[in-house]
């Protein structure tokens, strides 16, 4: 078997805390993405999803840093601690990012075309007519109806959906192996959302592009991804093939997420919200971090961090499924 394209081991990201000091907003995340694979990263607001994605090419905001002992390997090469110049060769060229808000992801003062040509020049050395032709090709690949016109337009003339397509074209310009999309459809209309997701799946299949898709919606992940990892309070609490996780969720948090989803089929019940929200990283509880909100929490959950349970590849960290000498491995 080929080694995974991306392998995250024990990733920790420390954020400054208001009173001083630092807290691990991402705390020991393990995650891997194979070549061409689509992986979803799901969790509520504050779970640490964005920090995880920003940590990959080290684009963390000032004051936020990767914890020593973390490892991010791309095709076996360590990125944590790599010099900026090496990271620049990874950013956009091997790992491209697409952000949530397409309105602000494009420079308002430059045309869409010139922003794409910039990437073509920097990463592929294309210029002049070649770059222009490739720009048009990319814009039509992402389904923009009038590439020539869009290339000449400044971003504000595009609708939200078109802007996100332009951002995806920009991400593709460096011919990356991995596309990391952080809630790429959250800011868009529902109808547009579905089309952008279909586009991502199509591109992934057509180009053999791996996708790490961040979302707080399991439905989004289920229609796009092969595997999913569920994050809670800086940790991955459950991961596995999408179908298995959705059909037989192990972790109470995953079950709550599934229950919180508005259902399109079946009885029209109101979504059952999970009471409360994820606390700030400095106030994370001991033991299982979900225990204050867990309906089935045991005494042990309050004291000790739960072990991994379940059969690979579908696993979760939860005491409820733990059998001494059994499921824990």
């Amino acid at each position: 078997m080929r080694s995974p394209l991306l392998e995250i081991r024990n990733l920790g990201v420390e954020v400054p805390v208001p009173g001083g000091g630092a807290a691990a907003a991402v705390d020991g995340v393990d995650l891997s993405v194979a070549h061409g694979e689509r992986v979803g990263l799901v969790g509520e607001s504050g779970a640490g999803k964005s920090l995880t994605t920003l940590a990959l090419p080290n684009l963390l905001p000032p004051g936020v840093r990767i914890r020593p002992g973390s490892s991010v390997r791309l095709d076996g090469r360590e990125l944590v601690g790599a010099p900026t110049r090496d990271l620049r060769a990874v950013r956009g060229k091997r790992v491209a990012l697409v952000f949530q808000d397409p309105t602000h992801a494009l420079n308002p003062a430059l045309t869409v075309g010139s922003q794409i040509r910039e990437v073509l020049l920097v990463h592929r050395g294309l210029r002049g007519g070649e770059a222009r032709a490739e720009t048009l090709r990319l814009l039509s690949e992402v389904g923009l109806p009038d590439p020539a016109r869009t290339a000449a337009d400044p971003p504000h003339r595009l609708s939200g959906g078109m802007r996100q397509r332009a951002c995806i074209a920009l991400a593709l310009a460096g011919e990356p192996d991995l596309l990391v999309a952080d809630e790429p459809t959250t800011a868009l209309d529902v109808t547009v959302q579905a089309r952008i997701l279909d586009l991502l799946v199509h591109l992934s299949e057509a180009r053999g592009l791996a996708l790490l898709l961040v979302s707080h919606d399991l439905a989004v992940v289920s229609r796009t991804c092969h595997r999913v990892a569920v994050m809670y309070a800086g940790r991955v609490v459950e991961k596995g093939p999408v179908k298995a996780v959705l059909e037989r969720p192990l972790h109470p948090y995953t079950r709550a997420l599934l229950a919180a989803r508005p259902r399109l089929t079946g009885p029209r019940t109101l979504p059952a919200p999970i009471a409360g929200s994820i606390p700030a990283p400095s106030a994370w509880p001991t033991g299982c971090r979900f225990h204050p909100r867990c309906p089935d929490a045991l005494d042990r959950c309050r004291r000790e961090a739960p072990p991994w349970v379940g059969l690979s590849p579908h696993r979760a960290t939860c005491w409820l499924h733990w059998e001494p000498g059994g499921g824990a491995s």
């Binding site: 090419p57 684009l59 620049r88 060769a89 990874v90 950013r91 956009g92 060229k93 491209a96 990012l97 952000f99 808000d101 602000h104 992801a105 494009l106 420079n107 308002p108 003062a109 430059l110 910039e118 990437v119 920097v122 990463h123 951002c167 920009l170 991400a171 310009a173 460096g174």
Partner: peptide
Amino acid sequence: AQDYVRSARARGLSEMRVLFRHGLRT
């Protein structure tokens, strides 16, 4: 501090490009 500057960095552009073409321009 704008998103598009972070995006420009995410595309692997050099700091000079980020500063002058993306930051300074606007």
